[in-house]
Design a protein around this nucleic acid. Structure first.
Length: 694
DNA sequence: GCCTCCAAACTATAGACAGCATGTC
DNA sequence: CTATAGTTTGGAGGC
C-alpha cells in the first residue's frame, strides 16, 4: 500500500512527512492495521515482531487523532525510550503537531504539556501526573501503550494496568492502542481492552534462528533443521560475520562476562575495524575509573560491552558507535534487548541461562530469547539476520532448539495482585477521589487486566489493605473513604505507603538524627535498591558496630533480619562515603559496583530524601532543614561546606573542593579571585561559570 | 630460586521507574 | 544454598 492512500487520514502534509522520511510503502502489518480500522474509533492490540513497524502504526493513528483535535499520550517503559520516541515524533512538528516529553528527569515545560498534541512519558510518570492532578489529563483522547507485554513484569507491570483503568474512569471515550511483542495471549489483552487484535509474524528482514556447537550450526527454517559447517569457536562466528561486513551483538548473562568477552575479542575485531581514538577518549570524559578504562580500551579497537554499570553518556557512545559502524561487536547483558533499538546482522546468545537467587542457574524465558533474537538483521543493510544460541554439544543444541527456537513465548500474566501493588494503587485512587468506598475500589480494580484474568473476588484483600492504610493514618474510614492530608502527600510523592509509614514513624519518634541514621532510614524502605553482600564483605559488620549508637534500628546478630540489615547498612555506608567526597573509583572498588550503579543509587536516595523532607516539613519536624541539606549533599556528593559552591553550573564535587581549598566560597569570591580559580580549574571553565551566573 | 602449566578451588551472579528544579570532570 | 563458568590459586615439574 502506497502511503499516498493515507491522505484522507493524515492529510497531504502528513504523507509528505512520511515520504521525506523515505517511507513510501506500508509494511504488510501496517497495511493490515489500516484495513482493520486503525483510523476508526476502535481500540487496538497490535502484537507483531520487533522492527516490523509498530511505532509507525501508532504514529499514524496519533496524527489522525490530533488532526481530529484529540490529544495523545504515548507511554514507554524506559526513560531512554521516551527521549528516543520524542525525537522521532518531533518530525511531525513540521506539520504543526506539538510534541512533548515528560519523565522523571527530563520534562517539557508544564504549560507546554497542556498544549501538546502528543506527549511521550514513562508509564510511572503518567501515573504520577494523574496523581498530581495535571489538568490536561482529562483531555487525553488516545492512549498508546508501547511494550504492553511488560504488563507481565513483576516490578513494573501493574502500573500499566492501573493507567488504563484510571484513564477509562477519567475519560471513558478515550481510545487505547496497545503495542506488544508477539505473545500467545494477545487475544486476552484485546478482550480486556475491547480491542481489535492484529497479530503477524512478518519481518522486514528475514530472521534465521539456530544453535551453534563446536564445528556446526543448526539452522531452523520453516521447522526444518539444516546443518551448516562452522568454526570451532565463538571467535570464528564473530570473524565470519565481520569479514562479511556485518556487525555482531552478543548477549551474556553477567556484566563480568560481557567485559571479559569484549576484551577477549579485541584481537579478532582489530583486523576489521579502524581505531577509534576519539570515541575512546569520550568514554573517559566524566569518569576514568577501572571500568571506564577497560571500556575505552575496547572501544578504541572496535568492541564494547554494554550493561547497567556504564554511565548514561557511555551507553550512548556505545550505541551510537555501533549504529555508525565504528564499533563492530557489542557484548551486552539484557539491557540492550529491552532498550533502544540496536540491530546487528548476527546476534549471538551466549548467556542462555541466568542465575536466580534461591534457585541457581535457570534458562531465561523464551520471550526474553525471542526479544534478543529479534535484534538480528538491520533493515536496509542486511539481506537477513541471524540469531545463534551457543551450546557445547549436539545434544544440548537439539534441546535448545526445541526449547527456544521452536518454543512459544510465555503468556503475559498480571502481577497486580501482589499486596504491595494493591496497597500502592489503592491509596492513590482514594487520594484522587476515584473511589470513596470499598465497593468503588473493587469496582475500579475489576476493570484491570488482573481482574480479567482472574475469577476470584478481591474483596478480602482490599479490606485487609484498607485496614492497614487506616492504621497508618493515610486513609480516614469514618463514613466514606477519604485520604488524610499526609496520605495524599504520600500518594503524590509516588512512594510506597510502607515507605511513607516508615518516614512518618521516624518523624514522630525522632527530632534529632545523624546523617548516617537518616541515610540508613531511607535504605530501610522498600523503595530503595540495596547492594549485595559479597563473601568478602565481613568488614561491613565492624563498620556497622561503629555506628551502632546512632542508628534507629540495629537487630541482634542472631535475628533473621541481620543479613538484610547488613545490606541496608552497606548501601547507607556507600552513600555516606559519597557525601564525604570519597573518590568515585574508590567507592566502586570498595563496594564492588560500577559508576552507573553509584549514580543510580544516588538518584534513588535523592528522590527518597526529597520525599522524607516533604513529609518532615508537613509534620513540622525540626529535622526538615537537616534532611533538605542532606538531599543537596547526596545530589552532588559533597560535604556540608561545598553545598553552596556546587549549586553553580559547571561546578561539581571535584572543582568545588579545589576552589574552596583556595578560599573561594561563593560566586563573589570567584569574581574576586578569578586568577586563582582559573589556575585551579582552567580559564575556559571559569569563564563559563561566570557567564552562566550573571 | 624461578618460571610455566594445569587442575582444583574459589567467586560472583540483569535490569531501573518515581520528586523537583536545572545542568559535569 | 541452588548452577555455571570465568578467575584465582596452588602444586607439580622443568630448568
Amino acid at each position: 500500500m502506497d502511503v499516498g492512500e493515507l491522505e484522507p487520514f493524515i492529510s497531504k502534509f502528513g504523507v509528505d512527512v512520511l515520504r521525506k522520511r523515505g517511507i513510501n510503502e506500508l509494511y504488510p502489518p501496517q497495511k493490515e492495521a489500516v484495513e482493520k480500522g486503525i483510523f476508526s474509533d476502535r481500540n487496538f492490540v497490535i502484537a507483531i515482531p520487533t522492527a516490523s513497524g509498530k511505532t509507525l502504526i501508532a504514529e499514524l493513528a496519533m496524527v489522525h487523532e490530533t488532526i481530529k483535535g484529540g490529544k495523545c499520550l504515548y507511554t514507554v517503559p524506559l526513560k531512554a525510550l521516551a527521549s528516543e520516541k520524542f525525537k522521532e515524533f518531533k518530525k511531525w512538528e513540521e506539520i504543526g503537531l506539538r510534541v512533548a516529553v515528560s519523565t522523571g528527569d527530563y520534562e517539557s515545560k508544564d504549560d507546554w504539556l497542556g498544549e501538546a498534541d502528543i506527549i511521550v512519558t514513562t508509564s510511572e510518570k503518567a501515573d504520577s501526573l494523574i496523581r498530581n492532578q495535571a489538568g490536561w489529563i482529562r483531555n487525553i483522547s488516545m492512549l498508546v501503550i508501547d511494550e504492553a507485554h511488560l504488563i507481565d513484569s513483576a516490578r513494573r507491570g501493574a502500573v500499566i494496568e492501573i493507567l488504563v483503568a484510571k484513564l477509562r474512569k477519567i475519560n471513558p471515550s478515550a481510545r487505547i492502542i496497545a503495542l506488544s511483542a508477539t505473545i500467545p495471549n494477545a487475544d486476552e489483552i484485546a478482550e480486556w481492552l475491547g480491542a481489535e487484535l492484529l497479530t503477524s509474524e512478518w519481518r522486514p528482514v528475514p530472521l534465521y534462528e539456530g544453535v551453534f556447537y563446536p564445528g556446526k550450526v543448526l539452522r531452523i527454517n520453516d521447522g526444518r533443521v539444516t546443518e551448516i559447517k562452522a568454526g570451532k569457536s565463538l571467535e570464528s562466528l564473530v570473524k565470519e560475520t565481520l569479514s562479511d561486513g556485518g556487525q555482531v551483538l552478543i548477549f551474556e548473562s553477567t556484566r563480568r562476562y560481557t567485559e571479559s568477552l569484549a576484551e577477549k575479542l579485541i584481537p579478532v575485531v582489530r583486523e576489521y575495524s579502524d581505531e577509534n581514538p576519539e570515541l575512546s577518549e569520550d568514554i573517559l570524559l566524566e569518569n576514568d575509573g577501572e571500568m571506564s578504562n577497560k571500556l575505552a580500551r575496547c572501544v578504541r579497537f572496535g568492541t564494547a560491552f554494554h550493561h547497567a554499570g556504564l554511565l548514561g553518556y557511555q551507553r550512548e557512545i556505545v550505541e551510537e558507535g555501533f549504529k555508525k559502524g565504528k564499533i563492530k561487536v557489542v557484548t551486552a547483558t539484557p539491557t540492550l534487548a529491552a532498550g533502544v533499538n540496536l540491530p546487528a546482522r548476527r546476534v549471538i546468545i551466549k548467556g542462555i541461562r541466568r542465575y536466580e537467587s534461591g534457585i541457581g542457574n535457570v534458562f531465561i524465558n523464551v520471550s526474553e530469547y525471542k526479544q534478543m533474537a529479534g535484534r538480528a538483521g538491520r533493515p536496509g543493510l542486511d539481506s537477513h539476520g541471524e540469531a545463534l544460541i551457543i551450546s557445547k554439544t549436539k545434544n544440548e543444541a537439539l534441546e535448545l532448539i526445541k526449547r527456544f527456537v521452536m518454543g512459544e513465548p510465555e503468556k503475559v500474566i498480571s502481577k497486580l495482585g501482589s499486596e504491595n501493588h494493591l496497597r500502592f494503587h489503592t491509596l492513590s485512587i482514594i487520594a484522587e477521589e476515584i473511589a470513596n468506598s470499598e465497593d468503588e475500589i473493587e469496582n475500579f480494580f475489576s476493570s484491570t487486566f488482573f481482574a480479567h484474568q482472574n475469577e476470584f473476588t478481591m474483596k478480602w484483600e482490599i479490606k485487609r489493605i484498607l485496614l492497614q492504610l487506616v492504621k497508618w493514618d493515610f486513609v480516614n474510614a469514618d463514613g466514606s473513604l477519604v485520604a488524610t492530608e499526609i496520605g495524599k502527600l504520600v500518594s503524590k510523592l509516588y512512594i510506597d505507603p510502607l515507605t511513607g509509614f516508615i518516614f512518618k514513624e521516624a518523624g514522630k519518634r525522632f527530632s534529632e538524627l545523624t546523617d548516617m541514621a537518616i541515610l540508613h532510614l531511607i535504605c530501610r524502605t522498600p523503595d530503595m535498591e540495596l547492594l549485595y553482600l559479597r563473601k568478602s564483605d565481613d568488614w561491613i559488620e565492624d563498620e556497622a558496630g561503629f555506628f551502632r549508637e546512632e542508628l534507629t534500628y540495629f537487630p541482634s546478630y542472631y535475628s533473621a533480619e541481620y543479613d538484610w540489615f547488613l545490606k541496608e547498612f552497606k548501601t547507607a555506608l556507600m552513600l555516606y562515603d559519597w557525601i564525604n567526597e570519597r573518590d568515585e573509583d574508590i567507592i566502586c572498588g570498595k563496594y564492588g559496583i560500577a559508576p552507573g550503579d553509584v549514580r543510580r543509587i544516588v538518584e534513588t536516595a535523592e528522590w527518597l530524601l526529597h520525599a522524607l523532607t516533604r513529609m518532615f516539613e508537613f509534620m513540622e519536624n525540626p529535622m526538615t532543614t537537616r534532611t533538605a541539606r542532606l538531599e543537596e549533599r547526596v545530589k552532588h556528593g559533597v560535604k556540608e561546606d561545598l553545598v553552596e559552591l556546587v549549586k553553580l553550573k559547571w561546578v561539581g564535587r571535584k572543582r568545588a573542593r579545589k576552589l574552596l581549598n583556595a578560599g573561594i566560597k561563593n560566586i563573589e569570591d570567584l569574581h574576586e579571585k578569578r586568577n586563582i580559580a582559573e589556575r585551579l580549574i582552567g580559564r575556559r571553565i571559569v569563564e563559563k561559570i561566570l557567564e552562566d551566573t550573571s
